[in-house]
Design a protein around this nucleic acid. Sequence first.
DNA 1: TGCCGGTCCATCGCTCGCAATGTAACTTGT
DNA 2: ACAAGTTACATTGCGAGCGATGGACCGGCA
Lengths: 143, 143
Amino acid sequence: MAFDRMDSATYLSSLLAKSFSRALQERGQKLGFAPGQFPVLLELWSEEGLTQKQLLDRLDIEQATMANTLARMERDGLVLRKKHPTDKRAQQIFLTAKAREMEGEAKEAALAADQSLLSGFRHFERELMLEYMRMAIANGAQS
Amino acid sequence: MAFDRMDSATYLSSLLAKSFSRALQERGQKLGFAPGQFPVLLELWSEEGLTQKQLLDRLDIEQATMANTLARMERDGLVLRKKHPTDKRAQQIFLTAKAREMEGEAKEAALAADQSLLSGFRHFERELMLEYMRMAIANGAQS
DNA sequence: TGCCGGTCCATCGCTCGCAATGTAACTTGT
DNA sequence: ACAAGTTACATTGCGAGCGATGGACCGGCA
């Protein structure tokens, strides 16, 4: 049976994710964040003091991954974990000054990463591609 | 600054890759292969006895990743590594009978994984999405 | 011949995904 | 009030990616 990797969405999506991740990593490392940390930062920029559980509900990541990511972020001086005032099992996550200050530059870095791989795309092409991606992701989510 | 994850190709591509990888993993594990091993299998189904270096040249993967993937494939009984007859540094990779026999089913599993996330796509939509992905990947490759 | 630069591969340490398991703490039902 | 069930988080072990480094070996050149 003929099977061309370059006609497989499965294969292409892994290449694509690697490419975007590299693009974000290059830009993010100057600022001091890693690609996997960016979604967490995004949520915390919009609201601090969330618990790990609340972050989990907002992001598409498993609990174990979140715990490890937060540990790395704490180690890297991006985040502080404080005991929850009423629930001793839980913790609240706060940004450090460093993390708070990089918000603008970090978001620009992420936009630049997007842009670098989407250069040459017309506006409607970019929108269509995003829409297709969201459709495929939705197909996967409900299974 | 407003920043919506769902408008970020970087973020969506990572979700997409996770979705496809899961879809392939579910189907592949019954047969006995993992998603990262599939591209290697594809190359070996079309030509056995390649060296690790030749596989590297054909796939978009780093040498360290390849070495580890081949080690896991050997452990899982998919592949044999034999000494290269004339170059003592090199090795030649051969498929086991098990791996050779699963070719048809494995390729169907990969097609099914593609199909499951692309259900609801019209033919031209699927083609367009693949084309956009190839374009973005090409943008990343030349940097 | 013998050395030296380049090549092939393994290994280590890291990120970031996952599932499975363990522990502490909260909640609920009797 | 206490046992039982549920929840929040950490930890472990694995896959699959990366860069960096090291050892063995090949080839070419003096």
